[in-house]
Simulated scan of single mutants.
Amino acid sequence: MAKSSLKNALMVILLVITIACSTKLCKAIESPQYKIVHSESDFEIRHYRESVWMAAPVNEISFEKATRNGFHRLFQFIQGANLNFSRIYMTKPVLTSIVPGAGPLHSSAYFVKFYLPDKFQADPPLPLPELNLQPDPWTSHCIAVRKFSGFARDSNIVKEAEKLALSLSRSPWENTTASTSEYAYSIAQYNSPFRIIGRVNEVWVDVTGSRANGCESNPIAAY
């Protein structure tokens, strides 16, 4: 498929999602479950329950290109490109995890992830091999989250991650970043590119903490 045709197809897909979210149906879109265990003005700590995601590995310098590539493959999967021929409802957010590297965004590889709805958590459909997708099981653990508005771009995601790191360094959660995590940080996107106003994005970083506040004391690598 030509690049222009692929781009047009992706835009149509995202337009359908946008139309769906303009109705009450959007409220039914599932998200991973969590509870807030610590909150400050510019970040919060969330304790996420066990869950299973589907992940698309992408070797790419650009965060934006990697997200488009991975999302396109994941969308084929939820539209029935799996060995069960199952149709899977869209969930949110679309999560792009950044693997540390030497590129201009401190990365050369990404994992674009889709949270599986409750119906498929226990028995995820197997993706077609040519999509190069893999299930990504999460253990129960804590994540530091910073919200930011507008569009998540190559030009701003590193700055947003640095702001979260600075906030953590000035809080009781200093030195709690999970050093064994295979991801530097992740970017969660909740809106389609057609939404201009009121966009919601988040930077996610694995953290450790005490069992008293709901976080395991040992570093957790996978999420």
Rank of each mutant, 00 (worst) to 15 (best):
F120K: 01
G70A: 02
H106Q: 15
T177P: 00
L83Y: 00
W204T: 08
P125E: 02
E174M: 13
E130W: 08
L74T: 04
C26E: 03
A55S: 15
S179A: 14
V99D: 00
D123W: 08
D154M: 07
K113C: 09
I197R: 10
R153S: 14
N201T: 04
S5C: 05
L133D: 02
E130S: 09
L164R: 07
I36A: 02
N84V: 04
G101K: 05
I187N: 00
W173E: 14
T67K: 14
S51H: 09
H106S: 12
P57K: 08
L168D: 12
A9Y: 07
M90Q: 12
N69I: 15
L74M: 04
F43T: 05
D154H: 14
C142I: 01
S155C: 03
P129I: 07
W204D: 07
E60T: 03
I19F: 13
K113E: 09
S107Q: 11
K119L: 13
L6V: 04
V12Q: 09
W173D: 13
T180Y: 07
L6M: 06
P117L: 04
N84H: 04
P124N: 03
N218E: 13
E50A: 14
A212S: 14
G70D: 00
K92S: 14
S107M: 14
S171H: 00
H72S: 10
G150Y: 08
P125A: 08
V94F: 07
W173M: 11
K92I: 08
W173R: 05
L25Q: 11
K3Y: 06
G80E: 12
C142H: 04
R46Y: 02
I45E: 13
K24V: 14
R195A: 11
I157P: 05
S97Y: 06
T139P: 03
Y115V: 00
L25C: 06
Y34N: 11
L116I: 03
A178I: 06
W138K: 05
L166W: 10
K24A: 09
S4I: 10
P57A: 10
I61N: 14
L74N: 06
W204A: 01
